[in-house]
Design a protein around this nucleic acid. Structure first.
Lengths: 157, 157
DNA sequence: TATTGTTATACTCTATAACTATA
DNA sequence: TATAGTTATAGAGTATAACAATA
């Protein structure tokens, strides 16, 4: 604990906190995550998709007839939380719940044509904002960062 | 959009989503952040510090007599949100609000002896959990990851 | 008995706006 | 006029528990 009682000058320059927090992965992840989440909202505008809704739509478009339970598991959220997300997408006529022959408990989720189009538009906007945010990164740095972030997930208990 | 209608097999293996989302920084950040946040809670236990309270305590311990406004700015949150955090720390007798001679609007924040001890304990626990989470990372990878995450903040608007 | 989708509920996090006391 | 701290409030986001229909 040698840095205690140091000056706050460096922190006052920018909004870069100093000291122990800088050395903690959780803290650095949180700060970076908040920046990207705000970028996301800027990219999709006032009544654009919430991040979770975008992620759900992405999977429904890419894996049509995915069920809600599968979707919840893949996204790492609760089934109950998915209801409002799918309600949202269905209210916008971007996704449709369909009965599955052979198991009447299950609802398969399929994108409408409008859903596919809306997803492509949103994805392009998000990707553009991310590219702008990473404009000071080399391609190699971008790839390394993504790879290391995925590596954290690889060990998940 | 070539991957559309592909199989969900890979996603079903683990909880690793596939497709477009994997290529988005925001998504990868969110997933990694959630893992580290859960680790943080495991590290500090049932009624341990919330992440924000821990961060505030960290700065108060390292920069005693920091004001609430400075603290809010450094942490990137609103002044109003800091009240409950400092209330929490003061209720636990870990931090004290002190009047500042010369400007009676300001409250300086100072850690108590118990606050310093509690911080050191908590920090050690968090660091241990982070080290465990990163056990499959080389030292160089850990350093690269931290550096790239900080680099995202460096361009913040 | 177990699973899918659902509802109800509550709790955390956080931003906005307005207030007060000081400057 | 502007700033520090505060209060009230509301909106996300998300987890838990319980339920009905179905397997």
């Amino acid at each position: 604990m040698a840095r205690r009682q140091a000056s706050l000058q460096r922190a006052q320059d920018d909004d870069a906190p100093v000291g122990d927090l800088e050395g903690l992965l959780g803290y650095n992840l949180k700060r970076a995550y908040v920046i990207l989440r705000n970028d996301f909202r800027d990219a999709l505008g006032e009544d654009g998709f919430a991040p979770r809704v975008f992620s759900a739509l992405s999977l429904i478009v890419q894996y049509p007839d995915i069920t809600q339970s599968e979707l919840a598991r893949v996204l790492g959220i609760e089934r109950s939380g998915l209801v409002a997300i799918v309600d949202d997408l269905e209210a916008r006529r971007l996704v449709q719940r369909k009965p599955v022959p052979g198991d009447r408990r299950v609802q398969a989720l399929a994108p409408t044509a409008a859903g596919i189009a809306a997803y492509d538009t949103a994805r392009a906007a998000v990707q553009a904002h991310e590219a702008a945010r990473l404009s000071n990164f080399t391609k190699a740095e971008q790839e390394t960062l993504m790879q290391l972030l995925r590596k954290i997930r690889a060990v998940e208990d």
